[in-house]
Amino acid sequence: MADAISGLTKGWLADVTFANYSDLFNRRGAQGDTAGELDEDEVPFLAGLLDAMLEELAEQFPAASSPEDARVIADARFQLDAAVQGRQSQGVGEAGRRLVGVTTTMLRLPGVRQAAQWMNGWSILSQIAQVGRYLDRRAKKAELGESVRARVLGGLDPARPLVVVSHSLGTVVAYEALHEYEGAVPVWITVGSPLALGAVVLDRLVPRPASCPPNVASWLNFWDRDDLVVGRPHLADWIGPSKTGVKAVTERVDSRGLWTHTATKYLEHGVVAHPVIEALRP
């Protein structure tokens, strides 16, 4: 395993391509105030995504066994309802600040707080807002998603087998890009994926109904219990198989330390890294 990792990092086992499209999300004049950057049509998406996240947390912290945590979740839901109800009368900026209040309240949950010690409500909302911007299909807005996929696909050679490791928003991008890709994909690994985090994401995917890309031979999905952004086991249930019968196989991992949503936290687990190495062996 050590030799394989060395070969991968030094470039002789396989060519490694990292698709960086973060600059495409930059907005002119942005000053780091997420609420101030929001468009009016982004608020409903973010509210729906936060609603799905609260549902996940409610399953994780049931009132019967975690009464204090359940009260925190109830408080966050109350704030979310207030943000949605007051959106039109109070304006986008105020609605955005209320949504930041929701994510800040969510960070009061013990496991979430420990897993995201350096995060705050602003940064969490900013990260999940990018998912909505990518999935926006309106005229001109859809150009962002097209540009992101073009950058991803532009660095690939369909004549060679491709092993894909995608993370967070990257799993949404990879889902759509792989449906356009013509080459063989022996293994596709998704970590920290919001693909099945409520209908607000699932129903915006293209193509629909959601299914495994046809050229993927194996799809492995990993989620962490303390990862705010994932849809947990639902991904394997809500996204259908490809025409050849391939569908996601989901497995839970448990990370320690700060902010479990990072790709490096997931790749520290042998169960995640091992399939990559196996797929690359000569």
Rank of each mutant, 00 (worst) to 15 (best):
T104F: 07
P110Y: 04
G111R: 06
A63T: 14
F61A: 05
F78Q: 05
L80G: 05
Q117Y: 14
V100S: 01
Q79K: 01
A115Y: 00
V72S: 01
G101W: 02
A83P: 05
V100F: 07
A95E: 10
A64C: 12
T104D: 05
D75E: 13
M119Y: 14
A63C: 11
M119G: 14
Q60W: 07
M106W: 06
M119W: 10
I124N: 05
L107G: 06
V84H: 02
L107R: 10
I73W: 02
G111N: 06
Q117H: 14
Q79W: 02
A83G: 01
F61C: 06
V102A: 00
D75G: 03
M106F: 08
P67L: 06
G86T: 14
A64H: 13
R97P: 15
P62L: 12
A95V: 03
V100I: 13
G101E: 04
E68D: 14
W122T: 15
P62K: 09
L80A: 03
D69A: 14
T105L: 06
A116K: 04
L109E: 00
V92Y: 02
A74S: 10
V92A: 05
L107W: 13
T105W: 05
G93R: 14
A95K: 05
Q60S: 13
G91Y: 07
V92E: 09
G101P: 03
Q60G: 12
G86M: 12
R113V: 11
P67N: 06
Q60N: 11
A64P: 00
R87C: 10
Q114M: 08
S89G: 08
E94Q: 10
D81E: 04
E94I: 15
E59G: 13
T103K: 04
A115M: 04
V112N: 06
M106H: 00
D69V: 13
A116N: 07
V92M: 07
Q60H: 08
M119F: 13
F78I: 08
S65R: 08
P110R: 10
N120I: 12
G86C: 12
A64I: 15
E59I: 12
D81S: 02
E59D: 13
V112R: 06
A95P: 06
D69F: 07
T105D: 05
I124Y: 11
W118M: 12
A74F: 04
Q117T: 15
P110G: 10
Q88R: 14
Q79T: 00
P62H: 09
A76D: 03
R108D: 09
I73A: 03
V112P: 04
G101H: 00
S66M: 11
Q90R: 02
